[in-house]
Design a protein around this nucleic acid. Structure first.
Lengths: 197, 197
DNA sequence: TATCACTTGGTAGCTACTATCATTTCGACG
DNA sequence: CGTCGAAATGATAGTAGCTACCAAGTGATA
């Protein structure tokens, strides 16, 4: 019997799987940094992690998925749910992002920024990153709709979420990309995008 | 000598190339519709267009590019430049899009909608569609910056463009996607995203 | 017509990815 | 502790997108 009844089992098998998964991701990311994404083959990654190429695909359906982690999405949604109901939707989203960022360790932030950099520089990854954002729009729209007591597919809520994500994406390409930039963008959006000459 | 000095030459060679290009695109789109994107091979498309697979890749660098046309981007930018300088940026963008749509024939609109539908249903294409939008953000930001007399990489202008594109994307998934929906979304954004319970 | 550049077809090869099967390894239970 | 079933792995073969290269054909030009 395990120590805690509903936690995932932690037998030798599970530990090995977790280690293999981590090894594949780490060596993959390292090789991508060292010699580029396209120049790194699955075979090399598998060899570095000491498994067969077959095994690689059992852990990650595609090469891209090695970079596409996104453990942060559910955290973001949780943070959004935790915001006081009085806050306006845009303020709630802004503060939720700020809260999530505040909880990250410096190491996590660094790794996230590195991931973003890699994703933006490789066309293939950039494309799927955009697709990832599309999923984020869905999740955010759902959460915002709940806040407002509107149906999940409410038109205005979807447009709102799209604008938020779009503003966020736009900051990911600035040469000095940091997460503070993202917060600034949301503040600007909250102010109604006041563009004057 | 050609009739007009700076227009592209229209010799037999050029005409054949244009015909081959069109044939590849047409047969490709038809096969995609009939039997699905993933189920259609380059070989089939090449055979239908009566060229070799090698030739396919000389016209389109990837299979995806067959669907990614995007002749509309420059038209959109031109329409944006043509807007009276007095209009606010958001109104200018909205009206520019409306103008472009008004100039399309019914056939063009239909084809555009079909293209969007195909792109949204195939994950692979959806990803690159998002990448296409990213390029559009760049172009729009540039045009808006010119209007405002700001540098091309102005932060606020980029955020603005990101929000516009994000709002636009969000409307592409609604079951009743039409171009009017997109205009409605921009109106909502122009109003400052007024979300209340 | 002769020459030259461009376009094409064909071949070979690399790599991401799938399907399948035999082998090994771990976990559970008597 | 030994055995049996399930899960994980490795190996093999095959498909398809895509690249590189070379030889042959076709259109432009003088």
């Amino acid at each position: 019997m395990n120590s805690s009844p509903d936690s995932p089992p932690v037998g030798l098998r599970e530990r090995k799987k977790a280690r293999t998964r981590a090894a594949l991701r780490e060596h993959g990311m390292r090789l991508f940094r060292e010699q580029g994404y396209a120049e790194t083959t699955i075979e090399q990654i598998a060899e570095a992690a000491d498994v067969s190429p077959s095994t690689f695909f059992r852990y990650f359906p595609t090469k891209e998925d090695l970079v596409l982690v996104d453990d942060l999405d559910p955290v973001l949604i949780a943070a959004l749910e935790a915001q006081p109901i009085e806050k306006s939707p845009i303020a709630a989203v802004r503060d939720a992002i700020a809260d999530v960022l505040a909880e990250l360790t410096d190491e996590d932030r660094e790794r996230e920024l590195q991931r973003h950099e890699l994703m933006l520089s490789v066309p293939e990854l950039r494309a799927t990153l955009m697709d990832e954002f599309r999923r984020t729009i869905d999740m955010m729209a759902e959460a915002v709709a709940r806040r407002l007591g509107r149906p999940a597919d409410d038109f205005e809520v979807r447009v709102f979420s799209g604008a938020v994500i779009g503003a966020t994406i736009s900051t990911f390409e600035s040469p000095v990309h940091s997460f503070e930039t993202t917060l600034r963008a949301l503040d600007f959006l909250a102010a109604g995008l006041p563009l004057v000459k």
